[in-house]
């Protein structure tokens, strides 16, 4: 048995103070606990952040939807406010994993982990999100740095994610049939004077496909990206999908998303 200390932090300050190079925040535990169990990760301290009230809850204003970091996927998918303001965000949450995972996993944990095939990072990019931490505000475009890598510093705690409400949007995922993570997920959002095509699952980190965004800004119709031949050289390849298949899926899912907008 690997022994560790369990702490339950009462506020962000305490949580951040307890953090060290061998600690992890415990939100839903849906990533942390399986990786500890399989011996892929060991920690000296687990800092439970679920009891920090400030981190949970959903607020909608005229321009944005702000979701507390420890808000569970199920709360996002069930929220009437989210459904009304950004329906695609609620349906993204509904498509994560399975009910057990959605009843525990949190949005903050998901983006802090930055799994290359996680769903939420694409929402952050597509919806021009701002990540609020206990120290600063970070634009989504600068937050996701690489595979499992973010701009977060040691002990920095995500408090909330603020999404910009788009004119139209849709998230379309081609799930891994086993895990149901995204083999490719494409989040298309049309904002005033701007279109984002955020892609997850295809490469080592979520990205905004500039070529498709530009084409769609000119003409927001799936025909404007139909048949686009994407460069697959940087795409992931595994037993579930080759790089070429992923390249094709990015376009297909983007088209579906545009059609569904």
């Amino acid at each position: 048995m690997k022994y560790f200390n369990y702490h339950s932090a009462k506020d962000s300050k305490e949580a951040s103070k307890l953090a060290s190079s061998s600690s992890a925040f415990l939100a839903g535990g849906m990533t942390t606990i399986p990786s500890m169990k399989l011996g892929l990760a060991t920690y000296k301290d687990l800092i439970d952040i679920k009891n920090i009230k400030k981190l949970s809850g959903i607020k909608v204003s005229g321009k944005s939807v702000t979701i507390g970091a420890a808000t569970k996927h199920v709360e996002v998918s069930n929220s009437k406010d989210v459904k009304k303001a950004i329906p695609s965000l609620s349906s993204l949450a509904e498509g994560i994993g399975d009910p057990q995972v959605r009843n525990r996993g949190t949005i903050g944990g998901s983006i802090a982990n930055n799994d290359p095939s996680a769903d939420y990072p694409s929402a952050c990019i597509a919806l021009n999100a701002t990540i609020h931490t206990n120290e600063r505000k970070i634009e989504a475009a600068k937050f996701f740095k690489g595979m499992f890598e973010t701009a977060l510093k040691k002990g920095e705690l995500i408090e909330a994610i603020e999404f910009q409400i788009p004119e139209k949007s849709s998230y379309q995922k081609h799930p891994n049939p086993a895990s149901r993570y995204a083999i490719v997920g494409v989040y298309v959002a049309k904002h005033k004077g701007d279109v984002n095509v955020a892609v997850t699952g295809a490469k080592s980190c979520v990205y905004n496909d500039k070529e498709m965004s530009k084409a769609l800004l000119g003409n927001f119709s799936s025909s404007s990206i139909d048949g686009m031949d994407l460069d697959s050289s940087e795409m992931n390849s595994d037993m579930h999908a080759s790089a070429d298949f992923r390249a094709s899926l990015v376009v297909t899912q983007a088209k579906k998303a545009v059609d569904a907008c």
Partner: peptide, 10 residues
């Protein structure tokens, strides 16, 4: 390669 439900599709 398919030693868990993450990769073995039940």
């Amino acid at each position: 390669m398919t030693g868990s439900y993450m990769d073995y599709t039940m």
